[in-house]
Amino acid sequence: MSRLEQRFADLKREGRAALVTFVTAGDPGYDASLAILKGLPTAGADVIELGMPFTDPMADGVAIQLATLRALEAGQTLAKTLQMVREFRTGNATTPIVLMGYYNPIHRFGVEKFVAEARDAGVDGLIIVDLPPEHDAELATPAQAAGIDFIRLTTPTTDDARLPRVLERSSGFVYYVSVAGVTGAGSATSDQVSGAIERLRRHTDLPISVGFGIRTPEQAAAIARLADGVVVGSALVDKVANASTGEQAVSDVLALCSALAEGVRGARKG
């Protein structure tokens, strides 16, 4: 059983949703970012999405755009992101790590080399924003062959006709983008989210994590009652943006993570 499967199965038994946290690798610098990564599981993160910085994050809002720029200015590269996962894995064998980003840096790195190094580093899944199922052959197929899950985004625009295509080769979990828009923008209502989850359930048995626009423990709790996972990204990344030192970034991100975890853990699934 993969780490992702194991984690969602365990949480299902506990009767609660997963807290999925997104941070950008190398933001605000390698060392502070690694400290955040290492601290997240203790602060209550169940699954970690680690953003791979790219100069042109077309589907991201301002918070993650700026995080990306901070990381790149601090010298982050894809090789360093993989190194970060390796270092994380020396102290943690159970928390799944999903790399999230855009295709070009991987394309440049070389797909074959990337898949092999990611697997050896202990990466569990990939979310590649600009690789729809139409381009599965490029990365999804080789990644899955190496045992790395390929997690798909589904959105309010993914209608019933398209859903099967999107879900066909999905693995790990399904990421439901609850609003049409960029990361960090507005949030969907509980009714909209529960309707969407009901619709997704008819098409898949995979765990469903919901993201976009979830910022507070209260919002996280509300989504945790409906979904198998709650994704928080921009709100955590904002903590890094507002910190004046690396140490402060680490402590502020982990403090928000703890508060979000409390919210998620307090909300038993109905």
Binding site: P132, E134, T155, V166, G181
Partner: peptide, 11 residues
Amino acid sequence: GRYVAETLMPL
């Protein structure tokens, strides 16, 4: 090709 976010694929 069509290397876009899923939100835009149906469009």
